[in-house]
Design a protein around this nucleic acid. Structure first.
Lengths: 184, 184
DNA sequence: TAGACTATGTATAACCA
DNA sequence: TTGGTTATACATAGTCT
């Protein structure tokens, strides 16, 4: 009826720079995060795309998102070795991880050469990793790590990182596009 | 001036289900992907958040996005062990990976207990992995993998996955929220 | 901290080049 | 495939609960 509407300012244009006010920053993150997750969900539905997102809030808390499943974030990391390259979202959605692996088993004969190379590389890297890890293990207390020993730990982590890096970006380096804001 | 404007239909509401037409699907993916990446970039700037996204196009091509750097997708996988939890985007942007590690070194004394547990766990898992890997290595030709041997390879991959899984989701399980559309 | 509200800014469906 | 246009649907900044 004749209910008087309260009128507010409505959306204003804002400058694209870091919000100085901490509360505003948190609110903005929370709202926009929801918006992006929503958009991502829509895109996954409309186009059958697989999407994984991880956001760190300004406070440092991680917020993961995955469609069709949140485990895709992890699954992709192994898919480099034994992928089912053109499998659509709908099918993947219906298959458990184990079933997917069985599926891959059936398709592997088409990827033998690449798989062999990757496997050898993984094994070599893993062995090198374990050797450096042996050195690190001599240190009993983390508190006592001196700069040199920390360097070893660093090397260990770098090695692990290389394995992961290898699995993720192998297929991406020749991919269609690479977006990032900021340095590589 | 009196220029007659061509009038189009403008944006129409669409039903939220998979687009049947393949061309429309590709166009939609391309445009919405750009939109989401743009939104993600804005969020990173406004809130100093760290964001990583990987999208698989309907055709199966991966499109990665990272802000402040695309390498964050990889970096997070190690950050579980030696994180710099509240470091903002702006600062991270200016630091190389090596500098970041040094930074972490300085802050590590605040995280000793958790770090020790994680390190032990990683080492145990890695050792178990290598043992199972030894078995796998007995197979000289990938072509000859029988179901049992493939099972071993599968175990090896699962083990690797667990390490990764552990690093990613350790902090998330108790985290503030977990979003996904579809099954876990 | 999380949910409404509303006016406005922005993304995007349809169409064309 | 990418880019431009228009009209509309949708997201969201500011504000109050």
């Amino acid at each position: 009826m004749g209910r008087k509407k309260k009128t507010t300012m409505g959306k204003q244009k804002i400058e694209m720079k870091k919000l100085e006010n901490e509360d505003a920053r948190h609110v903005c993150f929370s709202k926009r995060k929801a918006g992006i997750f929503s958009k991502a969900s829509e895109l996954a539905t409309l186009c059958g795309a697989e999407i994984t997102i991880v956001m760190d809030s300004p406070a440092g808390s991680p917020y993961p998102f995955g469609s069709p499943t949140i485990n895709l974030v992890v699954d992709r990391f192994l898919s480099g070795g034994l992928a089912l390259p053109t499998m659509g979202t709908q099918e993947a959605c219906r298959l458990s991880l184990v079933q997917e692996l069985n599926h891959q088993c059936m398709r592997i004969s088409n990827q033998l050469d690449a798989a062999k190379k990757r496997r050898t590389m993984l094994e070599d890297r893993l062995k090198a990793l374990v050797e450096s890890n042996q050195q690190v293990r001599k240190v009993e207390n983390f508190e006592e790590l001196n700069p040199v020993e920390f360097k070893e730990m660093e090397q260990f982590l770098y090695g692990l990182k290389e394995i992961i890096h290898f699995n993720i970006w192998k297929n991406l380096s020749g991919g269609p596009s690479t977006s990032n804001s900021g340095k590589m």
